[in-house]
Design a protein around this nucleic acid. Structure first.
Lengths: 153, 153
DNA sequence: CTGATATCAGCTCGACTGATATGC
DNA sequence: CGCATATCAGTCCAGCTGATATCA
C-alpha cells in the first residue's frame, strides 16, 4: 500500500502529458483497481492469477492448459505455475485427457467453485466504490468500451 | 510475447463472468496496451517506470523524490530504484535541496527530455492501433472516463 | 518528540525466454 | 517430418514491507 494522505490515490497535480496517454491512464487505472480489490482477493484465498483461470474453467468446463492460456492471454509457462498452486490449494485437479495423451484435462473442484463464488460476492461493492466517480450510465459505457478493446474481434 | 494465433490477442471464447468485472477488464486492457507499446519503449531507451517520472518532471519542474512518488502513486522505495536507473542513463540528476537538507531536488536533463520527446512521438500510432476498434468519439469518451477514474477528486 | 525524507535489503507476483521431453 | 503440449529453469520488472539514518 502506498503512503498517500488518504490511502489509495495518486494526486491532484498529476501532469497533463500523462493524462492524454491512454496507455498510461490504463496502467494507472488498472493499478488503482488492483489496490481496491487486493484485500478482498487475499481475504478469500484468491490470487490475481487464480481468478481468470477459475472463472474460465467454471464457464468453459474442463480444458487443456494451453486452451486456458489462449483464452486468457496467459503464457503456457505461467499456466503451469498457476495450476500448480491452484492444485495445491485444492481448487483444480489435473486429469489425463484420454483422447490426447499430451494434454491435461484441468477441472475445477467444488472448493474451487466456492472461492470463486465467495470472491464474486465480495468484490461487488469494491468495484462500485472504485467506479464511484461515474454514474450508472457511464459505468456501463466504460465497461462496454473496455470489452470492445479487449475483445478485438 | 504470447503464442497466439495472431500475435497479441486473448480469445474469442473468453468467459462471460470475466467480461462483467471492471477490474478484470482493466487488467487485461492494461496488459494489452503494455504489449502494444513495449517495443517502442525499448527501441527508444525508455522503460515503463521511466515514463511517468520523466513526464512528471518535465511538467512540474524539479521535485523531491517523495513528491514525484505522490504525484504518480509510486512507492518511495521504488522511486529510489527508478531514479538510480534514470540517473545511470543520464536522464535525471539528483541535487541537494538547499532549503531542506533531507530532500533531493530531482532535475530532468536534456537527454531526459530527448527520450521523452522521442517516445511521445513513437507512441502515437501504437495507441491508435490499440484503440482501433473504437471510433474517434469513443476514444475520447474512453480517455475521458479513464481520467475521471484516476483523477478521483 | 513527532513526522517527513531518502535509502537499503528482501519479498512476491506476473510476464517473459529458451530448452526439453513427449505425443499428435 | 513438423507441430502442439506440458514442464522446468531462470530473467526482469513492478509493487510492496520493514528497517535505518537523517533532518524539520
Amino acid at each position: 500500500m502506498i503512503h498517500h494522505d488518504d490511502g489509495c490515490r495518486p494526486a491532484e497535480g498529476a501532469p497533463r502529458r500523462l493524462y492524454d496517454k491512454a496507455f498510461w491512464l490504463l496502467g494507472r487505472a488498472a493499478l488503482d483497481a488492483q489496490r481496491f480489490t487486493a484485500d478482498r482477493l487475499a481475504e478469500v484465498g484468491m490470487r490475481r492469477g487464480f481468478y481468470g483461470v477459475l472463472a474460465s474453467l467454471a464457464e468453459a468446463g474442463p480444458s487443456s492448459q494451453a486452451d486456458i492460456g489462449r483464452r486468457l492471454g496467459v503464457d503456457r509457462s505461467d499456466m503451469v505455475a498457476i495450476l500448480n498452486d491452484l492444485e495445491g490449494e485444492g481448487y483444480v485437479t489435473r486429469e489425463p485427457d484420454p483422447t490426447d495423451r499430451r494434454r491435461n484435462s484441468v477441472v475445477i473442484t467444488r472448493s474451487g467453485k466456492s472461492v470463486l463464488a465467495r470472491f464474486d460476492r465480495a468484490i461487488a461493492d469494491a468495484e462500485k466504490a472504485f467506479l464511484s466517480t461515474l454514474d450508472t450510465r457511464e459505468r456501463k459505457t466504460f465497461v462496454a468500451l473496455l470489452r470492445r478493446i479487449t475483445d478485438k474481434s
